[in-house]
Design a protein around this nucleic acid. Sequence first.
DNA 1: ACCGCCAATGTTATAAATTAACATTAAAAG
DNA 2: CTTTTAATGTTAATTTATAACATTGGCGGT
Lengths: 250, 250
Amino acid sequence: MDERLSRIKQYIHEKGEIKLAELQQLFPGLSSMTLRRDLKKLEDAGEAVRTKGGAKSIRHLSRIKEEMYAKRSLENTAEKYIIAKKALGYMEESRSVFLDSGTTVMCLAQLLEAQKLFITTSAPNIALECVKNPNATINLIGGNLNRDNLSLSGITALDFLDNINIDIAFMAASGFSHKNGFTCGNYAEGEIKKKVIAKAGKVIVLMDSSKYGKSLPFTFARLNDVDMVISDDGLPSEAEKSLTANKYKK
Amino acid sequence: MDERLSRIKQYIHEKGEIKLAELQQLFPGLSSMTLRRDLKKLEDAGEAVRTKGGAKSIRHLSRIKEEMYAKRSLENTAEKYIIAKKALGYMEESRSVFLDSGTTVMCLAQLLEAQKLFITTSAPNIALECVKNPNATINLIGGNLNRDNLSLSGITALDFLDNINIDIAFMAASGFSHKNGFTCGNYAEGEIKKKVIAKAGKVIVLMDSSKYGKSLPFTFARLNDVDMVISDDGLPSEAEKSLTANKYKK
DNA sequence: ACCGCCAATGTTATAAATTAACATTAAAAG
DNA sequence: CTTTTAATGTTAATTTATAACATTGGCGGT
């Protein structure tokens, strides 16, 4: 494919929309007619729709649609959406991020903008969600697939993690108590989480308030091990204080 | 919502697109300005995008997008089904089977009965399909996720394969010619296939007849390397003979 | 019922964008 | 080295969108 066409395509997928005027600034010295024809090609290729004065990315449009859809279907679990939305603010472009398995993180994956990211995840459903983002590189750790929470674990998954670096890890927890820290219900899964947390530059835990005060068999982290806990507004005030006190630690 | 707006919305979602001129025929006596404003409302509501001279349904556009992903799975569905059905007969209970990525194999995964199986696969979508089977143990090889065919590959995926045994491998091929053998379009993917075939006790290739005579850049197997080729009835007769001659070889 | 208000729609002039047709240039093929 | 083809540029004509203002009709308040 044409070099210029690729650049336009990338630009349009990142911004969601482009104006002919912007294109002319991007490619000075080219006639508007040529750029117009390029947009037509993108439209024919099913990448974009031409609008008055420019074009819009189809991927971006369907992302908006999905967002609306997801928003509605998540109304009963509005907390997850709130948490994911907050977490989105800590997603940094061009970073290596780890996405844990779990519905809250899945929600985050659905909200991801078309930014450039290197994503590693332990959840095949999250990987398939993220692959819709044209600018993301997706890595999936290998291993045995847990039927209950759709997460991968096992010795090979641990080996996989040895070979990658993680800037930011977005982790899920099934329970938290001051006595036992962050806990989950599966040993192998806990091992994965431990390793990810050990390797990550920054650890953010996404946990809705219903998990507070509950303990599951396997502890994968203490409060000190994580940099931030993102939750909804349902936390008891003293919990809120202790969990969010260590924001921006490290 | 406005009665007229609903009708426009319905119309646009059915046809996928509407021209202002059509709208004026549908609602004679209304000024173009009003209809234009209606389209703008639909755009603000996230239902459509305005294009030159009309508007397009966002639902329809994202359907097109999904079609791009699913296009291949919709192509030759009848053939794929026939092939998958045949392949199902070679699935043996309590065996370690490998399922390659690809739409034909996906079709096979959907047909799987609730038999006890140890499944290893390179496709996250196939893993998620198989996990519905309560008696199956699912392993997913790790690695980088290819956006085009949703398959995993990379060095870690190869390492993963070192540690497992495979009784029967159900493989997909993007092309076959007598000169080049079985071929695929991606180097890393080809390496995975090679390793699987080397390790598997029995190799069955699922390939619809449209792939016959086509070559892609990377050869992953010769006719001698596989035990059986399952195809539909669309093969030229001499192809049929040479491909199926080695049934039950080994 | 009367008044005034507001929202929806219509009208017009102006600005902007698209198209079509043809001219030019550059690149590939022979 | 010429021929051919594809890509790009140029211009004018057409179509479409916008903005600003005018009109209509319903609705609530007193």
